[in-house]
């Protein structure tokens, strides 16, 4: 009286009520793997499809930023003083507010989303380039957090004993740090130090690297805790026991047997981390400790624009909207992925 479930497909966590269990068992008997089921569910999910398309578009914007900016012909760092016909772009007597356009933003057929007050840099171009910064930092930070979290969690859960005790305490301590404050305080300090120690100039390439590192470094502990818990239960499962009794070493068991079973968790966590790091990068740049001038970042743009909120609200609106749409799209997709991978979802 066995069920037609192989280890790899059997869902994590018990199915609560008996009648649910009965129907769920019936489902698995059809023999589709969790990955296939999740994929089939995702394809049916209109919101998932829509947000995936938006995310692909955003990625395309980031990748092809130089090409896109060629379309309107204004490099993101170029200070513009006049329109093509020679008329002034900025009202120099009035603190440099753009002349004309919607709500005093300087929008025109040349500058589609208007120009920055004072400097006259093109908002569209800066927004397009800001996409790069956002995605790069978020992706880098996510990869660092996932790698550290997975390795620490697996090692902790697999070896147990004093290794586990040590690493678990480390996780506790990492989780006790007020991380935003730390990230905020450390980013300029580390960037500064990079300059002193290695002679790397404190430019925005270094800043982006530091941001990725700091975000990742303060973000892995929670994932490590989850991974540890799952590893602890996975290592007791029959297929791991069997492999070990046949002489498989820890490396083989950890990477070939435990890691594949953690993939759904890691996938879900990745889709959750990316938008939160996009927000974090924007927040840090907004506070003035992230990306600095002249590189454009959405957070930086919002901080600049906040000074002009009364005279030129659109300048604030565009980077805000870009940030919101990006984060929303990632969150929507992440939610759909999580639901699709949840063995309990939609089963009665």
């Amino acid at each position: 009286m066995t069920l037609g479930v192989t280890e790899a497909q059997s869902p994590e966590g018990g199915l609560p009520a008996d009648h649910l269990a009965e129907t769920a068992e019936a489902k698995q008997i059809e023999g589709r793997s969790l990955g296939q089921i999740a994929w089939a569910r995702l394809k049916k999910d209109k919101i998932a499809i829509a947000s995936a398309i938006i995310i692909l578009l955003i990625i395309a914007v980031a990748v092809f930023a130089p090409l896109i900016v060629k379309l309107n012909g204004f490099p993101p760092d170029q200070f513009n003083k006049t329109n093509a016909d020679g008329s002034p772009l900025l009202n120099t007597r009035d603190g440099g507010i753009p002349i004309g356009g919607l709500w005093g933003s300087g929008t025109s057929s040349e500058h589609w989303l208007g120009v920055e007050p004072q400097n006259g840099r093109d908002v569209f171009s800066r927004l397009v380039y800001g996409t790069r910064v956002s995605l790069l930092v978020a992706l880098g930070g996510t990869i660092i957090a996932i790698v550290i979290g997975t390795v620490v969690g697996m090692v902790s859960g697999y070896f147990r004993g004093w290794v586990d005790t040590l690493l678990s305490r480390l996780m506790d301590i990492m989780l006790s740090f007020p991380s935003l404050l730390f990230v905020m305080a450390l980013t300029p300090v580390i960037a500064d130090r990079g300059q002193d120690l290695f002679g790397i100039p404190d430019d925005n390439k270094l800043r982006m690297g530091v941001l990725m590192f700091v975000l990742g470094f303060f973000g892995w502990a929670y994932l490590a805790r989850i991974v540890r818990g799952q590893t602890l239960s996975l290592r007791e499962r029959e297929f791991v026991e069997a492999a070990r009794s046949l002489g498989a070493g820890p490396g083989y068991v950890i990477f070939r047997q435990i890691l594949p079973n953690l993939l759904p968790t890691l996938l879900v966590y990745t889709t959750l981390l990316i938008p939160s790091y996009i927000t974090a990068e924007a927040a840090l740049s907004f506070l003035g400790v992230g990306i600095k001038e002249p590189t454009s970042s959405w957070g930086r743009m919002i901080a600049d624009a906040s000074d002009w909120i009364e005279s030129n609200p659109l300048y604030l609106f565009f980077p805000g909207l870009a940030l919101f749409i990006t984060v929303l799209a990632f969150n929507l997709l992440g939610d759909s992925v999580r639901d699709a991978l949840d063995p309990r979802a939609g089963r009665g």
Binding site: L3, E22, T23, A26, K27, I29
Partner: peptide, 25 residues
Amino acid sequence: SIPRVNRGGDHRLKSIRGTPPSLIN
């Protein structure tokens, strides 16, 4: 498939081959 003490030594416990049917199809 019930284990019995008084069963002879050459009798093996039988399980029903296959799996229960899908309640959907």
